[in-house]
């Protein structure tokens, strides 16, 4: 790979995405939770994985994005979470235009999206206890004081309790770790939750438990959901509507 997956790149930006300026976030916080228009992105300049994809997730809506492995749906999810800079196209979160990606995205825009990844082992810092893992976003945003009040209820809502919270990732099962990762994604009360193959590694019962936890939380907080996966039966059961990845691309 000539260009690392992460980190800033240095070629001139395509027009719709202005450079990293430090002006206040434009636009009101209304409208769709996520609006992507004509997004082209990839890891190799010559062969983008995504070509002109568009997708809208309404406020409070649950959208399932279906596609075979390697089709680019995870890249789309990363762009939507402002974790990967597209070559072209626009991303709006809660009506606000994204004008930077990764660290260049303003913190309050980044944190409107919570992300759960496919492999909890890779998505969890192995040195943190589950409690610290869940509270990490609060610490990172200077809201450490809220942790004692919020953590027990949030952990319980994803089915974690007792001494599990004091353990480190290598001392819990994949399912338990994924529950903690879900709680971490929800701890800042995002407007949009992105679950990228959240249950692909998990057994049927844990899958059902995690989906139930997400749905319980969404009922309470009205969070929008973008669930990315390949299991049609699962996503049709889970989401308000499902979209085939191919349908996002221009004809």
């Amino acid at each position: 790979m000539p260009e690392p997956i992460s980190g800033p790149t240095h070629e001139p930006l395509p027009e719709p995405i202005p450079g990293p300026t430090r002006e206040p976030v434009p636009g009101p916080a209304t409208g769709s939770a996520l609006e992507m228009r004509g997004v082209t992105a990839g890891y190799d300049r010559r062969a983008p994985v995504l070509h002109g994809a568009s997708l809208t997730v309404g406020d409070g809506e649950a959208v399932g994005l279906l596609g075979p492995s390697g089709c680019g749906k995870s890249t789309l999810a990363r762009v939507a979470a402002l974790l990967h800079r597209p070559r072209a196209g626009t991303v709006r979160l809660a009506g606000r235009m994204a004008y930077g990606f990764r660290h260049r995205a303003p913190r309050e825009l980044r944190t409107t999206v919570g992300v759960v990844f496919q492999q909890p082992r890779l998505a969890a810092d192995p040195r943190l206890t589950l409690a610290d893992l869940i509270a990490e976003p609060l610490r990172a945003t200077g809201r450490r004081a809220e942790a004692p009040g919020r953590l027990p209820a949030l952990a319980a809502s994803v089915g974690l309790g007792g001494d599990l919270l004091a353990r480190r990732p290598h001392e819990v099962s994949d399912g338990q770790l994924q529950r903690a990762c879900l709680a971490r994604a929800l701890v800042l009360r995002p407007r949009l939750l992105i679950c990228d193959e959240m249950t692909a590694m998990l057994d049927a019962s844990t899958t059902a438990a995690l989906v139930a936890a997400v749905e319980e939380y969404r009922r309470e907080h009205g969070t929008a959901l973008l669930a990315v996966g390949h299991d049609r039966v699962l996503l049709e059961r889970w989401c308000d509507r499902t979209v085939d990845f191919g349908a996002l691309l221009p004809r």
Partner: peptide, 19 residues
């Protein structure tokens, strides 16, 4: 039975608790 019932094509209800 619980494991099978947890499938999304069936009742999609998790078994309570954890192993």
């Amino acid at each position: 039975r619980g494991l099978l019932e947890a499938l999304p094509e069936r009742s999609f209800t998790p078994i309570p608790g954890m192993p």
